[in-house]
C-alpha cells in the first residue's frame, strides 16, 4: 500500500494521487503520512530502542534533541513500554519488539497506520496485550488503521470493518458482526477454519479497517 514493491498491475492511489506515477520525493512525502509496523518489528538492530523511534524524527523533522527524546518517551508510553529507550532490540521479547515497532510507526503522527501481521506467532496473552495497545492507539490518535492479519479474534476485536482478500482481490467488506454472520462460502470457510470447502482459494487474508 505504501509501495515497498512495485505493483505488477493496477495502481495505488492515496487520496486520489497515484503513488507510482508520483516523483520519488513526492512518494516519500506521501509515505511520511503513513506509519507502518512490520511482522517482526523490523527494528534497526544497530541502534537502541530510543534511537529506533527517534530515527524518523531526526530524518524528517527539525526537532531539537530535547523535543525528540520527549516524543520518544511519549511514543513508548503509548505502547505501554515506558523507559526502555536505552535497551537494544535484541534484548526485547517478540511482543515488546512489535510494540516498539508500533511506537516507531506512530512517531511522526501518521494519518494512516499499517499493521502487517502484528500478532502472528505470539502467545494468546501477548496477542491480547497487542490488540489492546492497538485499540488504545486508535482511540488516542484516531488514525486510519489498516491491519493485515490471519487472527480473526484480533480482527473482530480491533476492527470497524473486515475485508477478505484473495489473490489480490477484496471478496467481501463488512462490519465485524455481519462478516461473522455472512453465509458467503469463502467467508464461512475462513471463519470456521474448514479447508475442505475452499481448498484452491489459497491463503485468503483478512483486512481490518
Amino acid at each position: 500500500m505504501i509501495g515497498l514493491l512495485t505493483p505488477d498491475s493496477g495502481t495505488v492511489e492515496v487520496e486520489g494521487e497515484d503513488l507510482w506515477s508520483a516523483s520519488r520525493s513526492r512518494r516519500d512525502e506521501i509515505r511520511r503520512r503513513f506509519g507502518m509496523s512490520f511482522q517482526e518489528g523490523a527494528l534497526f538492530d544497530s541502534m537502541s530502542v530510543g534511537e529506533n523511534i527517534a530515527f524518523p524524527l531526526k530524518r524528517h523533522t527539525k526537532m531539537t534533541p530535547g523535543d525528540v527524546s520527549a516524543r520518544v518517551a511519549e511514543c513508548l508510553s503509548l505502547v505501554k513500554l515506558p523507559g526502555i529507550e536505552g535497551k537494544r532490540p535484541s534484548e526485547l521479547s517478540g511482543g515488546m519488539r512489535r510494540r516498539v515497532g508500533f511506537a516507531r510507526a506512530i512517531a511522526l503522527k501518521p494519518e494512516v497506520l499499517l499493521f502487517d501481521e502484528p500478532t502472528t506467532g505470539l502467545d494468546p496473552i501477548t496477542t491480547d496485550v497487542l490488540a489492546r495497545v492497538m485499540i488504545d492507539l486508535r482511540d488516542r490518535m484516531n488514525p486510519t488503521m489498516v491491519t493485515i492479519t490471519h487472527d480473526l479474534k484480533v480482527a473482530f476485536e480491533v476492527a470497524e470493518r473486515v475485508a477478505l482478500l484473495d489473490r489480490g482481490r477484496i471478496l467481501v467488506d463488512l462490519p465485524p458482526r455481519e462478516f461473522e454472520a455472512s453465509d458467503d462460502p469463502r467467508v464461512r470457510a475462513f471463519v470456521l477454519g474448514d479447508g475442505s470447502e475452499d481448498a484452491e482459494s489459497g491463503s485468503p487474508e483478512e483486512a481490518a479497517v
Binding site: I2, G3, L4, D28, E29, R31, R32, F34, G35, M36, F38, Q39, E40, A42, L43, F44, D45, F55, P56, R59, H60, G101, R104, A105, L108, L114
Partner: peptide, 10 residues
C-alpha cells in the same frame, strides 16, 4: 524487513 522499514519511514 529492516530495509522495508527504512522505506516505510520515507
Amino acid at each position: 524487513e529492516q530495509i522495508d522499514a527504512l522505506v516505510s519511514l520515507a
